[in-house]
Computed example of a mutant assay.
Amino acid sequence: MNSRISINALTQPLVTQLLKDAEKLHLIVEKPHCTIIDAGINAIGGIQAGLRIAEICLGGLGHVNLSNSGQGTWSWQIQVNTSNPVLACLGSQYAGWSLSHEKFYALGSGAGRILAQKEPLFNELGLTDNATNTTLVLEVDKIPPQEIIDKIVQDCHLPSAEALTLILTPTRSLAGCVQIVARVLEVAMHKVHTLHFPLERVIDGMGSAPLPPPAKDFVTAMGRTNDAILFGGQVQLFVTGDDSDAKQLAEQLPSSASRDYGRPFAEIFKDYKYDFFQIDPLLFSPAKVTITALESGRSFHAGQIDLQGLAKSFGE
C-alpha cells in the first residue's frame, strides 16, 4: 500500500502545539541538543498530555479521547478511531524501533520510524517519507544518552539534532498509561498482520479500553496497561471481502484465542522469567472484537470483556 501521505508533516503541527501548551499540560521541555519533552519522568504529565501524545503516535491520522462507558468499576475509557488504520497504527503508532546503548533500552513509536526504515514492515507496505524533521515517542523512565540521540539523527537522515523531538512517557505515569492504552486498535492491527489477513482490506477502525490507575513499579504498570486491552479492550474493524474471511478473522482476533490468556499479564510475565519473547504473541489483542464486512453489511463478533480480570489486575 504505497501512500503519498506524510505522517511527519501531519504530526509536526501536533508537536508544535504540544510544546506551546507544555506548561499547562505539566510537561517539561529541554533542548540539550534535540528537543526533549518529559511527560512523566521529572514532569507530572497527565491525562490530557497522554491524549495529545497518543494522537502524535498515530501520525496525525487518528483521534483519541476520554469517555465514560458506564460499564463496571473501571468505566473511564480511552477511545481511538482512524480511517487509515494501516498507516496510522502500523506505520506510526506501533513501537517497532528497538533502540539500545549500554543500560538504556527503549522501543520507538511515531513518525520517525518511517524515516529510519529499520523494520521489514516498511518495505512490505511500501511506506516511505522524506521529511527533514521528525518525532519519536519512547516509553522510558530516563533521558536517552547522547549516543541514542546521535543514532536516531543519523538513521533518520536528519540535518541535525535540532530537527528531532523525543517525547518520553514512563509506563508508571498517567500520560504513559493513556498513550499505551490508546494502542488498543494498533494491537488489533498488529495481530491482523500476524494472522496474514490482507491489510489493504482493512478500511476503517475504532477501539476503546479502560484507563487503569498508574502503579508504583514498572512491572505492575506494564501489567495493568496490557490487561486494560487484553481484558477490557474492544475493537471494530471494517473490511472488504467475503463474509467467511471476516468471520474467521473475528474468531481468531480476541485475546482469549491465545494459550496464555486468563491471568494478569504481570503474572504471566513473571512466570516466563521476564522474557517478553516467550509469551504467546497471539495474546496481544483486544478482549472483544467486531468485524464488519462492508459488501454484505454483516458483522461478526467474538470474545468478551472480563471485568473480574480487570479488577484483579487494577488492584481491587
Rank of each mutant, 00 (worst) to 15 (best):
M1G: 03
R4M: 13
T16L: 14
H26N: 15
E30L: 15
E30W: 05
K31W: 07
T35A: 05
I37T: 09
A39T: 12
G45R: 10
G46A: 11
I47K: 13
I53E: 06
C57M: 15
G59D: 03
G60E: 02
L61R: 08
N65F: 11
S67L: 08
N68S: 10
Q71A: 13
W76M: 15
V80S: 02
N81P: 00
S83K: 10
S92L: 00
Y94K: 05
L99K: 06
E102K: 09
L107V: 00
A111F: 06
A111K: 06
P120V: 12
F122N: 03
N123E: 13
L125H: 03
L127P: 03
D129P: 08
N130K: 11
T134M: 04
T134A: 07
T135F: 09
V137I: 15
D141T: 07
I143V: 14
Q146G: 06
K151L: 06
Q154H: 14
A163G: 08
L164I: 09
T165C: 04
I167S: 03
R172V: 10
S173W: 03
L174Y: 09
Q179G: 09
L185S: 07
E186T: 01
E186H: 00
M189I: 03
M189V: 05
H190E: 09
V192W: 01
T194M: 13
V202L: 02
V202M: 01
G207V: 03
S208H: 14
P212R: 05
A215R: 04
A215G: 05
T220D: 08
A221C: 03
R224C: 04
D227V: 08
G232D: 06
G241V: 11
D242F: 04
S244A: 15
A246M: 14
K247E: 13
E251R: 08
Q252P: 02
P264H: 12
D271A: 11
F276Q: 05
I279D: 12
D280F: 13
L282Y: 08
L283S: 05
F284T: 05
S285D: 01
A287W: 04
T290F: 02
F300E: 11
H301L: 14
I305V: 11
L307Q: 14
L307I: 06
Q308M: 08
G309E: 05
K312R: 11
F314N: 03
